[in-house]
Amino acid sequence: MARPDCAQPPFIPSPSTPPVGVAQDKLQPLAEVEGRDRNPLRIRPSTSRQSREVYPERLPWQPAEGLGNSVRWLAFLLLAMFAVPAAAQDSLPPAPYAYRQLEDPAKEKAAQDLMLTLRCLTCQSQSIADSDAAMAGDMRHQVRERIAKGEDPEAIRAWLIERYGDWVSYEPRVTTITWPLFAAPIVLLLLAGVIVRKRFTRAKAQGDKI
């Protein structure tokens, strides 16, 4: 009957003295009551309550000792990773041609080819064809509308470069800054040719010696 971890053993009614107001048939035999009391889930009486009073329960974002708490802290941090500022998105539907293809397949193909080589202003490493940013959608709308009107894709590119600089296009042009990009392969090929030629002449000279 004595339980070391239990400060106040619960009242166990004796079958001989039924409590007032409890019907005889609701009373459980002693063995059953004792068995239930030995249930490990139930034999943690007042200690947890007392400790809760002394040390109030920690809030989930408060770091604390113990594995359980650190896991909770980690879970909170993981959740915080996906936090987004409230109301930082507009509520308007996308522009008409942001997600709708042009009716003419040839024009849609021209628009698609151009959109793949235009850079998104919001997600700066994506093309506007790949990005779901509102501004990329608006830019696709501009591209499709202008192509539908019969404008040349390169003219649209030029229109955007005029406003945002070469930055907005993924198709590099030859300029004072970008010329090494085009010159490098030619220079490397020439260099390789010179090295190979040297090697062959040397091998020939050695072969002549032998």
Partner: peptide
């Protein structure tokens, strides 16, 4: 401006 057209006109990105 519902389609950000003025931003493309101005060279504005946000």
């Amino acid at each position: 401006d519902d389609v950000s057209k003025i931003q493309f006109d101005l060279g504005s990105s946000g």
